[in-house]
Design a protein around this nucleic acid. Structure first.
Lengths: 344, 344
DNA sequence: GTGAAAGCGCTAACAG
DNA sequence: CTGTTAGCGCTTTCAC
């Protein structure tokens, strides 16, 4: 304790003890301290004890920057979201995913860095990726053309996509079979004897949205049908309202509506109601995502389950494996399921 | 370009160019390159140009760890949330706040680290805080007793609380005057000639919830009234429904209801409606937070505005100022305002 | 203005 | 098993 004070005094305030200090107090070399601190096995029992008590006494905490510099490992993984912040925090899917990543990282003491790479902010992202901030990258909500110029390839660290990865990139990925999801929705509606089915799609620069539409159209075609109407929103509630209004105004006849996201389904639902249409009697409605409020009693929206949390969790585990040099499935595709409720 | 390739070849793959490389190519010293890269002014025009083109040519990106180690700055700020992850991503207030922080950090190229310090995870948080990961700390949703043992004091970096800071800690803070918020709600109801006012409070281990209740009761007392009924939820929709049901079942007479969160107000609204009570004719309802859906036409809930986004934004700006050594208000308390809509 | 030199605190061969 | 020895890539006095 006297020693603690001396040290404290001799190195100014606010500055923590260093490996060197611990080594001196424990009477061993810096290398040995380093080994003990990192949990290396090759150290004799008694020295371990000595070092540990010195660490305790001095309140030693390793300096992260020095460690990163020497080991070329940052001890962090980054979740990169090429999306404007307002969008990110507006869409419950993101929260879910972040939560899943957080869970997937679990005990492994990697820090999670959240990188919102606003469109056009490639330079900044590039600096981040090359700056050695992260040992691995998780990318979600990736649009065509985002993170261009091989930013990811040059990163030099493992990359795992949550969602469909861009073509030809040798990265890992965990995705939902969105085509099948679209089929599922269409099939369900058809089985409920609907024949005039409209769809509000998501933005067509997003693979998930394209796939849902593709599956939907294929399933319809297989049944000898075609969409009663088709339009495009951006996954938001507002766009759902807007497109539903357009649908109503178009005069198109329809007895069912498939929205590519629950938020859009909710928006549409509201407009249908205002219009005096009964759900599901006049119009059956099915959404996609199965967000929490879909299960609300007052809403009870039938929806294709999008297991965002699990996807994120598995993606982060895969990333951890990749970083550790362990082999893993490089491409996981989950099968969607349906949550059938009262809107169909 | 020939030079680029040589370098590339001479240092193995995946490794970026270093300051040294840039210096060599530009024909200047490392110190000069460093100055240019950091935007130091003391460099002659022509050298700046040379360095910049060398940087360009080599695709040089500074190594963060080395920079941190040398400068004793991490280039990041952490948002510490002593809350279980499930809670964090369930409460819209958090999203709002994160979004605000993100905005407040803005151009300043600080990274945002999200640290979910689950209860009991103090050791881990301590390691983080002492590890030099962040140049400043933002703390939100802090409960009594969280982050104990002076973890924050020893951090050695500026700390700003979003919300009410623990007693006696010399940290900055940005908070809403929740007492005044409670008063505002009560006063509004009283002015609307309501005399039998019930309240669904939030969890009493959260300062904000306690304060809202305090303000409410004080304002009532000032008018010679007392609460018609009082109970406690946890800010969720479900708890609002539950407590409203209890209120209805209690047989208490009331002509107004103040809920400590919009989510609870919404839950209550639903139950009142089911019960056939007209709002605002039979019961005036006022919430707290002014979440997005409160403004929905179909809901149009009167609510006390909780400017979570601004709070977070100002807090992060304050933190940036503190880190830069600039002086700032250490304690900002925002005054709440009312969004008057059709439920009162 | 600019360069030389001395570290920042730690890890990682390499001998012993 | 343990200590010695080199750096990791950058910032930062300090002379020039």
């Amino acid at each position: 304790m006297g020693r603690t004070d001396e040290l404290e005094a001799s190195r100014g305030t606010g500055r923590g003890a260093t490996l060197e200090d611990v080594a001196r107090v424990a009477g061993v070399s810096r290398a040995t301290v380093s080994r003990v601190v990192r949990g290396d096995v090759q150290v004799r029992r008694d020295k371990v004890v000595k070092v540990e008590s010195a660490v305790q006494e001095l309140g030693y905490v390793p300096n992260n920057a020095a460690r990163s510099l020497a080991s070329r490992q940052s001890g962090a993984v980054a979740l990169i979201v090429p999306e404007h912040e307002t969008r990110v925090f507006t869409d419950p899917f993101f929260s879910t995913a972040i939560s899943g990543v957080s869970a997937g990282l679990g005990a492994g003491d990697k820090q999670l860095l959240l990188v919102l790479s606003s469109p056009g902010g490639d330079a900044r992202t590039r600096r981040f990726v090359h700056g050695g901030h992260a040992d691995g990258l998780l990318v979600m909500s990736h649009h065509e053309g985002d993170l261009s110029d091989g930013i990811l390839e040059e990163a030099g660290v493992p990359v795992v996509f949550i969602g469909r990865p861009p073509e030809g990139l040798g990265a890992g990925s965990v995705d939902l079979d969105n085509v099948e999801g679209g089929r599922l929705a269409a099939r369900h509606l058809i089985e409920r004897s609907r024949r005039r089915i409209a769809m509000i799609c998501g933005p067509q620069d997003m693979p998930a949205a394209v796939d849902r539409r593709t599956g939907f159209e294929k399933e319809l075609a297989d049944a000898g049908l075609e969409p009663a109407w088709l339009s495009f929103g951006d996954f938001t509630l507002a766009s759902g309202e807007r497109e539903a209004t357009a649908l109503l105004a178009s005069g198109a006849r329809f007895d069912a509506l498939f929205a590519s996201s629950d938020l859009m389904a909710l928006g549409a639902l509201k407009k249908l109601e205002v219009q005096g249409l009964r759900v599901p009697e006049d119009v059956a409605v099915i959404g996609f995502d199965d967000i929490a409020s879909a299960a609300d009693e007052a809403i009870s929206l039938t929806s294709v389950i999008n297991p965002g949390r699990q996807m994120a969790e598995r993606a982060s585990q895969m990333l951890l494996d990749l970083i550790a040099g362990r082999e893993t499935d490089q491409q996981i595709v989950l099968r969607p399921e349906l949550a059938v409720r009262s809107t169909t």
